[in-house]
Design a protein around this nucleic acid. Structure first.
Lengths: 223, 223
DNA sequence: ACAATAGTGTCTTTTAGACAATATAAA
DNA sequence: TTTATATTGTCTAAAAGACACTATTGT
């Protein structure tokens, strides 16, 4: 009196149970004019019509093979970048965060050098713009819980930065050690001792000296 | 020629779009006989009928208000524990990981003192058992991608342990510093200098001395 | 007294921080 | 030469590691 797994799968009906909506949102970071920014898009449709929101959208189970592919697809649609630094922050899910329905959003964050970005507004979106981050938050009020998501992602980013190479992904290669230190300082919102910073970076043996020099103001460093 | 948000919401039909199945799985850690263990349940139904799997199940949008509540519900059903240490690892989602359908699992991990657990098999489950962790993995092959999930969670746990108080949640209070050190060593799978360990723990000012002593083998510490 | 384990003293090494000193190139 | 910024030297302070030593209690 039992069926095999094959028989079970053949008769499986996914729509027999109520399920949450599932979306992916991406916090896209870049450095513009010596300030950390996040990309947002203006929604063309309800809910939150005309409000600004994180880059994101529904998981398309007919085209996306994985959650990460949903994130990459959204990111590429808007910025043209195919292989960014992309990391999952985590998921938020509740019956309150989206007025339509019980909703889960899996949140990713991406780090892109500004020079590699070619914005493309695409469908379902009125406009795109960059919002400056100050103290880990943006001033403008965004759709859904997206202000909170930015805050949480930025805290995660800050906590990971000091002993990692994440900020590399915000700069176009090659870069000087001073430029790199500036980016660390932007993210952490605090000063770093130049000497200590160099010691750590060179000690980590991730960097490679190019021999090139820069005629910016005075001397020039390596990468 | 446009409708208001209220009108939009009234006519919203969630089932118009295909959506993934959404589940929550919990990696429940506890220390038994000086070994780190993970709780698994034997599935009563297809798919993977009779195979062992992490404690978990579908998000019930009619009863759960948040994703975390789904995790807490599952955890309480099986262990009776109401307020464990619970943290989200993240989500995995793909069209391959569940033979039924495109599936997202949001993975949590929990730390419980073994003494506070009262196992309850409940419905949909044949049996429950603890699997010992060795080198961050369990020997037995589990359903779905659950072996990978345990591995990933354990790595996360290891990376967070050293400068945190997480292992406190695996011990029943009060405990001795030696017991605490043993737990750190179990998780990290390496020896810790007793002197250095005491310095750090007492320096962190999270612990409180009880004055009590233990007649275990010889002398006795504080908490 | 001895064995076993808890806990301390203290020396060495490593790492971070502070900050003065030097180097280079543009104006 | 002056100025601005990059880069180094070096002293100090804090933390981690090593390891021998002392303390307590059951046998």
């Amino acid at each position: 009196m039992s069926i095999s797994e094959t028989e079970f799968l053949q008769s499986y009906e996914p729509n027999k149970f109520d399920r949450p909506n599932t979306t992916v949102d991406v916090v896209i970071y870049s450095v513009i004019d010596s300030q950390l920014h996040v990309l947002v898009m203006q929604r063309e449709n309800h809910p939150y019509k005309n409000a600004w929101a994180l880059v994101g959208g529904f998981v398309d189970i007919n085209h996306d093979e994985t959650l990460e592919q949903t994130a990459l697809r959204k990111l590429q649609e808007k910025t043209g970048v195919k292989s960014p630094y992309l990391e999952q922050y985590g998921s938020v899910g509740s019956n309150k965060r989206d007025p339509r329905y019980w909703s889960i959003s899996t949140v990713y964050f991406a780090l892109l050098p500004y020079e590699s970005i070619h914005l493309d507004i695409g469908e379902g979106v009125n406009d795109l713009k960059w919002l400056a981050l100050k103290n880990g938050v943006v001033k403008e009020t965004l759709a859904f819980d997206h202000n909170q998501l930015i805050k949480a992602c930025t805290e995660r980013l800050q906590s990971k930065v000091l002993y990692s190479s994440l900020p590399f992904y915000l700069l176009k290669q090659p870069f000087t050690l001073t430029e790199l230190r500036d980016v660390y300082q932007l993210i952490l919102e605090e000063e770093l001792e130049p000497k200590t910073f160099r010691r750590r970076m060179l000690g980590a043996e991730i960097l490679e000296e190019t021999g090139e020099t820069v005629q910016n103001h005075s001397k020039k460093p390596a990468m």
